[in-house]
Amino acid sequence: MSVIVFVEHDAGTIKKKNFEAVHYASGIAQKMGTTVTAVILGIVDNAEIEKLGAYGAQKVLHVEDSRLGELHPRAYTSALLTAIEKEGGKIIITLNDINGRAVAPRVAAKLKAGLVVGALTYPDMDKGFVIKKAVYSGKAFAYVNITSDKKVIMLMPNTFPITETTGKTVIEKLVVDFSGKDFGIKVNEVSKVTGEVSLSDASLVVSGGRGMKGRENWYLIEDLAKELGAATACSRPVSDADWRPHHEHVGQTGGTIRPDLYIAVGISGAIQHLAGVNGSKTIVVINKDPEAPFFKAANYGVVGDAMEVLPRLTEAVKKFKQHK
């Protein structure tokens, strides 16, 4: 009854957050005295899959079917259920991201397994099977006990630091008996954002608010983000005004992010915005209004005009990188 972990990949490349999911599964497996079986779907090289060994997967079940390169929630569910049955798995780990949300709840409903979305801790097994998660988009945390025999946990990405080990893995091909229904969704057109760091995966984020005064000033945010290797985000008024695309909106009615560093420029820090970002490890606030509520939630604050401070900060980062 190994711990099962669903491993996503981006056109054959496994990302850091997916290694983190394996690492998390491994932590649980060690507590329970069992092993980790990873499940990977679609076309991926063996050399890439073998990397999972270093994060604690003793075995990988690979469903090598080119149709799985697209997100088909039912097909993914069938594949995971096949793997779970084969391994006698009772604990299933995915990430709390777009793919995880399409699959994990389906698997949970099918298995009648209790589900925790956005796990921030390992389960406390002394008190049952208790996991901490954010609620009210980060305004509070809840300790959720899973009472069912089977359990599905969706890990919040960027929660645990990961380290490589010398562990090795064994790859087995898994054949899944898909039905016609599994591919009921036809994908007509895909457009991927390239050349930018994706917001949900980013460990560094530079975000702008109304204080940026207009979309024409956004190059200042982008210059800093580029120098840092950071993703860009924005507050709700900015996306409502169409200065920025809505997928950049973070806050209670936008995305929730937990980067290592969140730099908020010209954002006052309304409670709804804070809810989406207060899981960030370090917060820097740049605002010309010293009374902006965001300063109360910040680690570092700069009271000044964004138009002047941003180029200076970008220059300082550039200098720092040269001397590093």
């Binding site: 008190k127 207060n278 910040a298």
Partner: peptide, 15 residues
């Protein structure tokens, strides 16, 4: 039957 239950809550630590 519910499959999960919330035992307690916690507020984020103050900065």
């Amino acid at each position: 039957d519910a499959l999960t239950s919330i035992l307690s809550y916690e507020l984020p630590p103050a900065k």
